[in-house]
Design a protein around this nucleic acid. Structure first.
Length: 580
RNA sequence: AGCGGGGUAGGGUAGCCAGGAGUGCCCGCUGGGCUCAUAACCCGGAGACCACAGGUUCAAAUCCUGUCCCCGCUACCA
């Protein structure tokens, strides 16, 4: 690794392997992390983008049980499926692992031992509901009964949805198991290990206060949490599916899923390093103060990434703490919350059956929920795809390349003498390249996209004003002017492809193909500010140049809308429960 | 209840942290130009008391205080 490059480790929150994720999950971490990683690669940074599936926990164990398959097979299936879908979305992971891997088990145990040795773990007994029929302990969510406060019969062990009161499972009247439905429940005393977060609150507070580069909401949230007083948190569970606890007396227990999940970030980096033939390479990212570790996550994950995970790293001293936390808000669908139980949402696989990945990527990035929750609307997806992608970008490319074929034999024409208008235009392009870059580094990615798109509008205007189709008929002098306009516009088209690459990678590659420039992966962001196409350079034959984007047809949109609405079902309370 | 975020033209959204004529973007509406191009492109117009009420200031969408709505989070759900 060259020493002079900036070093980045981009991490997106790990998707849970209990099914296929909806597009809200994508927009909350996977997609923006990918966009940023791609940008950094264009910047020439030493960057890896690491992610993977989170595969432990009761939810998966129960889901597998209900599906009638072994847990391992269940996890295998959804890991593979998610990986495949993300590939189709163009997510450019350098490594996509799974928390059930041997490496993650080993690293989790190693980190646990370090935390234990430093005295941050204590053992306590607790009363846990046990289902005699299923022969399993039930986490609070899997025990239901009648709420002692309001009498609601479907209250869960952790909270009553009707009156909102926080409950203890032992207080529930007429409790029954949510897995088998039977009421053969007894409370058993079991020993568990607890992480003493409160011992770290001083250190955490100091550290978070120093993280001035974090977004305001992440810092406030974390500091507020600490101010309210951290308490110890149980890190073990009575399950068999998960990472074994390396302690005598804990043979039948595993770590609680939130404990081993973030450790996946580290283990996946180790696994990646091994594929590179240098198993120590992970330390280049995790034990290197010059490396910026960037966590991209939905706001629901803030607590874990700003307090709990950093405290695990602090307590263990195992690796460096994250340097940036980019948190995204939520995505609503047509004004309503995404909800698995109400069947309201768009899954990441079906989305791609309806429209190409770049359409989704573009639209989702254009409404990226950075400030507040964003509303996804199919109608707007169509409008954005049609107006921005097809009309502004696609048509620009097409009109300019066709013109090159019709008037300059498919070769980049040599420009004549540059006029003020030409210089102004190029200055505008360079300005947009620079401001898009600035927005990226300021973690304003929606704005970065807008700035990049501006090049398309500038180019259309410039091409229009130059009227090359008229000039070309006005003798030698006119032809030279037309040549200049086309030359400059072609340069801008190349620049546009580069700056849009983080957002719509496959379309950008298509533009490069049309320009016969090979792979866009190897080009640099800075080259977008330069005129890289030499006069005389041949572009792809006209027959190969198809419109970049076909327009979304309202009839097709109506069909998709009908599919979504048909399966929407109201839930018992008339409001959707918490997200999936 | 506590905490966080939001309320900007018919709809959507940016601007707010680092105050300076309501500035911008997309759709929709509307007048015109162009005809290279995917009926695409370009220019112009109409349309907002920037939630409400106070305050600070020469100047407030932007800062402060209060009020009213909307949404989210609150750790043994991931």
């Amino acid at each position: 690794m060259p020493e002079d490059k900036p070093v980045y480790l981009v991490l997106s929150a790990l998707p849970y392997a209990n099914g296929v994720k909806h597009i809200g999950n994508l927009v909350g971490s996977l997609l923006p992390a990918d966009v940023y990683a791609r940008f950094l690669r264009l910047q020439g940074a030493d960057v890896i983008y690491v992610c993977g599936t989170d595969e432990h926990g009761t939810t998966i164990e129960v889901a597998a049980l209900k599906a009638g398959v072994p847990v391992q097979a269940f996890a295998d299936k959804y890991h593979a499926k998610q990986k495949e879908i993300y590939g189709k979305w163009g997510l450019s992971f350098d490594y996509f692992g799974r928390t059930s891997s041997g490496e993650n088990h080993a690293t989790t145990q190693e980190i646990f031992k370090a935390i234990y040795d430093k005295g941050y773990v204590i053992e306590k007994e607790m009363q846990t509901p046990y289902c005699l029929f299923d022969k399993r302990f039930l986490p609070d969510r899997y025990i239901e009964g009648t709420c002692p406060h309001c009498g609601f019969e479907g209250a869960r062990g952790d909270q009553c949805e009707k009156c909102g009161k926080v409950l203890d499972p032992i207080d529930l009247k007429k409790p029954h198991c949510n897995v088998c439905g039977k009421s053969e429940i007894e409370f058993r005393k079991t020993k568990h290990l607890f992480l003493q977060l409160q011992k770290l609150s001083g250190q955490l507070k100091t550290w978070i206060t120093e993280q001035e580069q974090w977004p305001q909401n992440a810092r406030n949230f974390a500091l507020q949490w600490i101010a309210q007083g951290l308490h110890e948190r149980c890190i073990t569970r009575d399950l068999s599916w998960g990472v074994k606890v390396p302690m005598p007396g804990y043979e039948d227990k595993v770590f609680y899923v939130w404990f081993d999940a973030p450790i996946g970030y580290v283990s996946f980096t180790k696994e990646w390093a091994r594929t590179k033939g240098d198993s120590a390479l992970w330390e280049h990212y995790w034990k290197n103060r010059d490396c910026k570790i960037v966590n991209v996550l939905g706001k629901d994950n803030l607590a874990f990434h700003t307090v709990i995970w950093p405290s695990m790293l602090m307590a263990s001293g195992y690796a460096d703490l994250p340097s940036q936390v980019k948190s995204l808000e939520f995505l609503n669908l047509e004004g309503k919350k995404f909800s698995t139980s109400r069947n309201w949402g768009i899954n990441s696989d079906e989305a791609l059956e309806w429209f190409p990945a770049d359409y989704w990527r573009y639209y989702l990035c254009s409404i990226l929920p950075e400030q507040g929750d964003a509303d996804f609307s199919l109608h707007e997806l169509m409008q954005k795809s049609n107006k921005d992608l097809a009309d502004a970008v696609g048509n620009l490319v097409h009109r300019c390349l066709s013109f090159t074929h019709m008037n300059f034999e498919g070769k980049v024409p040599a420009p004549g003498e540059l006029q003020p208008a030409d210089n102004d235009f190029w200055r505008a392009v360079k300005k947009q390249v620079a401001s898009s870059e600035e927005s990226f580094y300021a973690y304003r990615w929606q704005e970065a996209l807008r700035e990049a798109m501006q090049i398309a509008h500038e180019s259309n205007k410039y091409f229009n004003d130059g009227e090359p189709w008229k000039k070309v008929k006005e003798g030698e002098e006119g032809k030279r002017k037309a040549a200049t306009t086309v030359f400059m516009t072609l340069q801008a088209v190349r620049s546009l492809a580069v700056v849009l690459q983080p957002f719509i990678p496959s379309s950008s590659q298509k533009i490069f193909d049309y320009l016969k420039l090979g792979s866009i992966e190897g080009s640099s962001w800075n080259s977008a500010a330069e005129q890289k196409l030499p006069a005389g350079h041949e572009i792809a034959p006209m027959a190969e140049i198809k419109p970049l984007f076909t327009k979304v047809d309202p009839a097709q949109l109506a069909k998709v809308k009908a599919i979504l609405e048909a399966r929407l079902k109201p839930d018992a309370l008339g409001k959707p429960p918490a997200k999936a």
